[in-house]
Amino acid sequence: MTLLENQSAAIPAPREITTKPRLSDQIFRAIVTLGGMASLVILGLIALFLSLKGFHILTEEKFSFITESRWEVITGDTGNIEESNLGIGAMLVGTFLSALIAISVGVPIAVLSALYLTFYARGSAKKILISLIDLMAAFPSLLYGFWGFFVFMASAEYWAKLLNKYLGFVPFFDVPAPIFERSPFIAGLVLAIMIIPITTSISREIFDQTPLDRVQAAYALGASKLSMIRAVVIPYGRGGVIGGAMLGLGRAMGETVAVYTVLNIVYQINWQVLFGAGGNVASLILLKFGEAGPYEVDALMAAGLILFILTLLVNALADVLINRFGKKGR
């Protein structure tokens, strides 16, 4: 009896039962939420500051900033700008051209190797291959650029000549002069090599998520691997693969160093992909930055803003595709 009485004094008062978080939790949640908003804040700040510096260029140069292909600033004796013709038309065309070459070459290869990794490779070989491809995705673009310039260029030039020789009647593959070095075609191939690892690993992850019961149902119905992949894996993973391709496109569009080293940056709209002249918005920024006066720097900011918005749009589309259509299928 006395024992119990003694203990009853030591039992703490029960906590109030409530769903309201305690003070420590409120603080914790507030801090974590604030930290979580960081990405929103940073993206917003990027848009804000690039617009602050670059927007007046867009209003002064108007629509020609996107359509024109000149980059001239004529300064007077006192250093003030008398005339300016700034436009990134050629560079925008070049950005899309090299990125399109990159995904049209890279994505089929990436999808095939993702199929190999998911449905053909076994055991430790599979693990090693997956690690290698992840490692390749972490290689810096500087490495791809210089490898492309010093090693890959020679082979790619030969392929370009072959294409020109046998498919020269297609306007795309025609050249005004036989200069095949440093062309958008070669830059596109280097970008393709850069995006293959990312697209492969995203496609592989999507293929891996294919419900096993559907795969086995297909096999049980007597499907061969090909018909199983056509009936189950492709419908299920199509959206995800397209999303992965879009991510690759975004990366290829924003690539700076690799394009700068491989491509011969020339200020003209060039549709002939095998001809050694082209450009890309990101590499233009790097090229012009060193010699740019204040007005030109602002114009480069505007170019950066356009690039930022473009990649954001591509990424948004990729995200929608991966999430909305990634999990569907028969």
Binding site: L43, I46, L50, S141, M253, G304, T311, L312
Partner: peptide
């Protein structure tokens, strides 16, 4: 976060 990972590195520098 996904979109941020797609920000071109040169844009980060410009920012």
């Amino acid at each position: 976060v996904q979109a941020m990972s797609g920000v071109p590195s040169i844009v980060a520098g410009l920012f």
